[in-house]
């Protein structure tokens, strides 16, 4: 199935909130999910990230942008950052959210060492990653995200309905 980027971002954001993640991290995860899927990333990485709201790249990777900025300022344009194990699958998607010109970005894992983000970027050039018009996402991923997102929904009360837009018998005036 294909979706707009905003549909995917909104759904993933709600899913992260439904899974128990704090709202800011959920928002960033929503945006990163779009880049992950647009880049052909595996849906399982998203599912793994959502599994544990106490230990997840969703909590750690929002801080990656600041680490990148700091490292680029100190020793750019080519930098290497050590990632937490488990963060490697989504690190590039979070990196793509930054408004800097990225020449090269890759994740590798030397034998016996933690994963690393290897990046060459120009801090002085503002740039934003372009997204395709449609984002493909498998139905089972959408179903899983929708199930988590539903945990943020609340059944509207009668009072709410009575006070909502269009309430009252005046629609044929």
């Amino acid at each position: 199935m294909s979706f707009s980027a905003n549909e995917i971002a909104s759904l993933a954001q709600k899913a992260a909130r439904g899974a128990g993640f704090p709202p800011r991290q959920a928002e960033v995860f929503g945006a990163a999910t779009v880049h992950h899927l647009a880049g052909g990333g595996a849906p399982t990485a998203l599912l793994h990230a959502l599994a544990d709201p106490t230990d997840s790249p969703i909590l750690r990777l929002p801080l990656l942008a600041e680490d990148i900025l700091r490292a680029l300022t100190l020793s750019g344009p080519e930098i290497t950052l050590t990632l937490q194990p488990g963060d490697e699958a989504l690190a590039l998607a979070y990196t793509a959210l930054m408004h800097i010109h990225i020449e090269r970005a890759a994740v590798d894992q030397p034998e016996g060492a933690p994963p690393r983000l290897v990046l060459c970027a120009d801090l002085d050039t503002s740039s934003r990653a372009r997204l395709p018009a449609r984002i493909d996402a498998p139905a089972d991923l959408i179903e899983h995200l929708s199930g988590l997102a539903a945990k943020t929904h609340v059944a509207a009360t009668g009072e709410s309905r009575d006070a909502g837009a269009g309430a009252g018998n005046i629609d044929n005036d």
Partner: peptide, 26 residues
């Protein structure tokens, strides 16, 4: 503030009189 189940639209409720505050929008 919350998102309604039936239409996924923003709504507002009374924390002390209505259910759902644990799912509050930020």
């Amino acid at each position: 503030w919350y998102v309604s189940e039936e239409k996924q639209e923003p709504r507002i409720g009374d924390r002390f009189a209505e259910p759902g505050a644990e799912r509050e929008s930020p």
